[in-house]
C-alpha cells in the first residue's frame, strides 16, 4: 500500500523527509502507517473488551488528559529530527507554572501579561541551550541536562510548595467546555493542541526551515556544505522546543489550575517515548509530526486501557508495555531502514 497515492494523507505527511529515492519514502510511510495501525488496533481492542470504551468521549479524553505531552512532543520532534535531544521539557513546563502562579496569585498581575511573558521565558531558555549546542559544541544531552537542572532549580527556589491558581481566568478556562456531538466535548487545550500540530506540520514539511531541519539530521556536514543556515536552524529548533515546553506548562495550568515545582517530573522520557513510537528516528533525519501525535495517542490509550481494567492490573505494567512498544518500534525502524537501503541499492 502506498499512502502517497492517497491524496489527503500525502498532503498531511508531506514528502520532504529524507533525501534519497522514492522507495525509501515508502518504507518511511510504512512506519507511520504501522504507528497509526497500532493505535487503531489498540483502540479496537479496548472497544471490544470494554463497554463504553468506543465513544467520542474516550477518544477526546486522550487529548484532554495529555495536552502537555502532545505539545512538548511536537517541540521534541523538531529537536530529535536534527539529531539532538531535549531533556529540559518537564522542568521548563514546571518553571512556567511556578512563574505564572507567583506573578498572578502573589503579585496580582493579569494573566494577559503573564502568559506571553512565561512563553518568552521558555523560548529564551531554549534559545540559550541552542546557542550552547551550536556555538560551544556542547552535546545536546549535557546542555539540556543543564537546562533541566536550572529550570527545576529555579522553580524550586521560587517556592517549594504548590500554588493554587484562584484567578478567575484560569478557573474559567479550565471549566470551559466546547460541545462537539452529543455529550462529547473538548477543552481549550484541545484547540491549542490542534493549532500547534497544524503549525508544526506546515513548518516541518512546507518551509525552508523544515527542510533544513531534516537536512541537519540527515548529515550536518552536508547541510553546511550545501550552504543551508545550519546554525540559525539549530538554535531555532531548541527555541521552538523551549516555547513548546512553556506552552505545555500553560496547558497544565488550564488542565489543573495550580503551579507546582514538581510538575512534569520524568515527563521528558514519556515525551521521547512518544516521539520514538511515532516513528521518528533518534539518529535524526526522518520523522513525521503526525507520527508523534499518534505516538502520544498510543501512550494515552495504554493508560486508558489499564484504567478500564480497574484494579485487576498493576498500573506498573503501563511502563513495561511502553518500554516494550519502544523496543518493537525501534526494531521495526531498523528493519525498514535496512530493507529501504537494499532496495535503494538495487
Amino acid at each position: 500500500m502506498n499512502i502517497k497515492n492517497i491524496p489527503i494523507l500525502s498532503c498531511i505527511t508531506g514528502g520532504k523527509g529524507g533525501n534519497s529515492s522514492g522507495s525509501m519514502f515508502n518504507f518511511k510511510y510504512l512506519l507511520l502507517a504501522a504507528t497509526i495501525a497500532l493505535f487503531i488496533i489498540m483502540f479496537g481492542i479496548g472497544s471490544v473488551s470494554f463497554r463504553g470504551f468506543f465513544s467520542l468521549k474516550v477518544f477526546f479524553d486522550l487529548f484532554i488528559d495529555n495536552p502537555f505531552l502532545f505539545i512538548a512532543a511536537i517541540g521534541m520532534t523538531f529537536v530529535i529530527i536534527t539529531g539532538g535531544i531535549d531533556l529540559s521539557v518537564g522542568s521548563v513546563a514546571a518553571l512556567t507554572t511556578m512563574i505564572t502562579g507567583t506573578l498572578v496569585e502573589i503579585h496580582g498581575i493579569s494573566p494577559a501579561v503573564v502568559l506571553p511573558f512565561v512563553l518568552l521565558v521558555g523560548s529564551l531558555i531554549g534559545f540559550l541551550i541552542g546557542i550552547m549546542v551550536h556555538f560551544f559544541k556542547i552535546q545536546p544531552f549535557i546542555a539540556t541536562l543543564g537546562g533541566m537542572f536550572l529550570a527545576r532549580g529555579i522553580a524550586l527556589m521560587i517556592n517549594t510548595d504548590s500554588i493554587t491558581l484562584n484567578n478567575s481566568f484560569f478557573k474559567a478556562v479550565s471549566n470551559y467546555h466546547i460541545p462537539v456531538i452529543g455529550n462529547a466535548f473538548i477543552t481549550i487545550n484541545v484547540v491549542i493542541i490542534l493549532i500547534v500540530v497544524i503549525a508544526a506540520i506546515i513548518l516541518a514539511h512546507y518551509t525552508n526551515f523544515g527542510r533544513t531541519v531534516y537536512a541537519i539530521g540527515g548529515n550536518e556536514q552536508s547541510a553546511i556544505l550545501m550552504g543551508l543556515p545550519v546554525g540559525r536552524t539549530k538554535i531555532l529548533v531548541y527555541t521552538i522546543s523551549g516555547f513548546c515546553s512553556a506552552l505545555a506548562g500553560v496547558t497544565m495550568m488550564f488542565y489543573m489550575p495550580s503551579g507546582n515545582p514538581l510538575h512534569g517530573v520524568g515527563m521528558e522520557m514519556d515525551v521521547i517515548a512518544a516521539v520514538v513510537i511515532g516513528g521518528t528516528m533518534l539518529t535524526g533525519g526522518s520523522g513525521y509530526m503526525l507520527g508523534t501525535v499518534f505516538g502520544v495517542l498510543i501512550l494515552g490509550t495504554i493508560a486508558t486501557l489499564i484504567n478500564f481494567q480497574g484494579g485487576s492490573v498493576n498500573p506498573w505494567w503501563i511502563r513495561i508495555i511502553n518500554a516494550a512498544l519502544i523496543l518493537v518500534f525501534c526494531l521495526l525502524q531498523i528493519l525498514f531502514e535496512k530493507k529501504g537501503r537494499k532496495i535503494a541499492k538495487s
Binding site: 535531544i85 521521547i272 517515548a273 533518534l282 539518529t283 506498573w316 525501534c330
Partner: peptide
C-alpha cells in the same frame, strides 16, 4: 540489534522502575 545506545537504555529505564515495582 544495532539500536542506538540512548534508545536501548531508555527502554530499560522506562521498564526498569515498573519491574522493580512488580
Amino acid at each position: 540489534m544495532g539500536l542506538q545506545p540512548i534508545i536501548a537504555t531508555l527502554i530499560l529505564m522506562v521498564a526498569g522502575r515498573g519491574i522493580a515495582q512488580l
